[in-house]
Simulated assay, not measured.
Amino acid sequence: MTVTIKDRRRTPIRFPYRAVSWLAPLAVLGIWELAARLGLISQQVLPAPSTVLTKAAELIADGELPENLLASLQRAATGFVIGAVAGLGFGLLVGLSRVAEAFLDRTIQMVRAVPFLAILPLVIVWFGIGEGGKIFLIALGTSIPLYLNTVLGIRQIDAKLLEMTEVVGLNRAEQVRWVVLPGALPSILGGLRLSLTAAWLALVIAETIGADAGLGFMATNAREFLQADVIVLVVIIYAVIGIVCDLITRLLERRLLRWHPTYAKLHA
């Protein structure tokens, strides 16, 4: 007589992290809408999401929102590209060379410690109220996080790997290509996410310098006329853009770090 023993082990239930990450902000919007409809929140102080959505439809229909959104996206993209190239370039130099570190790092750390609002008057003196000053602020805000994370990523590379490349006869360029950049890539991509956030924070400040278009321009005008729905709309647009930028960097991480054992394990 054969006795069959059933395997009582159950397949572990995976927590729906991704679903919860989207349901949480939707729940906040639902509570916000309900509180506004019940009169718990004044429409003059914080309009309901439905009111903000109606206002957004009006601004899209008359072309005001697309025009200002495009202006902000162009500024942010230009400043981000310039800042990312500078941050990555200086980060590689300082991370790979003690001489470059001696010349550059202390100065960059000092610039990093200066708040944007403190240098805003000086930027106006340098560039006036044109586009140059706005792009400069965005580039500055973008470059610092990427610089810091690039240097950190390079410093965390195992020295034995670099010694091995010398043993096998790789030159400096090959060391950077095959060891330094792949080893520092997780930290660089982390810096990229921070840089995208910093670019939008800098944009908000930059668009206070005599801007005649952009999301900041819309918010400033709305403040003058006490249009709370427009101000909330601008804030929501910033939040949505931030989410989109974060999703893009996550996709880059999934594509570029598929080979990384720790990343693959955490995102399996």
Rank of each mutant, 00 (worst) to 15 (best):
G30S: 12
G39P: 07
R14G: 05
M218K: 05
A173N: 06
I205R: 00
M164E: 09
V94E: 04
I138K: 01
A268S: 14
A268Q: 11
L104I: 14
V114R: 04
T54V: 11
L92M: 15
F15K: 02
Y17K: 08
L46G: 01
Q156V: 11
A61C: 02
L40P: 11
F103H: 12
A113P: 07
L162I: 15
T220R: 06
E224A: 14
A76M: 12
D105E: 15
L181W: 10
I5A: 10
S21R: 02
L137N: 03
M1D: 08
V20E: 01
P66K: 08
W200N: 05
T150N: 05
A228P: 00
R255P: 00
R112C: 08
L170T: 12
P25K: 07
D105P: 08
R177A: 14
G79I: 02
A199D: 02
M1S: 13
L256I: 10
A77L: 15
L148Y: 01
Q43M: 05
L192N: 05
I129W: 08
A77Q: 03
V176R: 10
V179Q: 10
Y147N: 03
S72C: 11
D105Q: 13
S72N: 07
L257Y: 01
P47T: 15
A202V: 06
T165R: 13
A86I: 15
S187C: 04
G153K: 08
R14C: 04
A264Q: 13
I119T: 02
L194N: 02
P115A: 06
S97C: 10
L46H: 04
F217R: 12
T208C: 06
A268N: 10
T2E: 12
A19W: 06
L34H: 11
L196P: 05
F103R: 10
L65M: 06
I135V: 15
V99I: 15
P115M: 09
A57K: 14
S97L: 09
F217N: 11
F103K: 11
V52W: 01
V123D: 02
V240W: 01
R75F: 07
D7Q: 09
L34S: 14
L203F: 11
V204A: 15
E163P: 01
G242V: 05
L266P: 00
L46I: 14
L26D: 09
A202G: 03
V151E: 05
L266C: 00
R172W: 03
V176Q: 07
R254K: 08
E166I: 03
E58S: 11
L88A: 07
V244A: 15
A19K: 03
G89R: 03
E131F: 01
C245S: 12
R177E: 10
P47I: 12
W200F: 14
G83A: 12
A56F: 05
V85M: 12
L181M: 15
A198P: 08
M1I: 13
V230R: 04
P47A: 10
E163M: 02
L162H: 08
L65A: 06
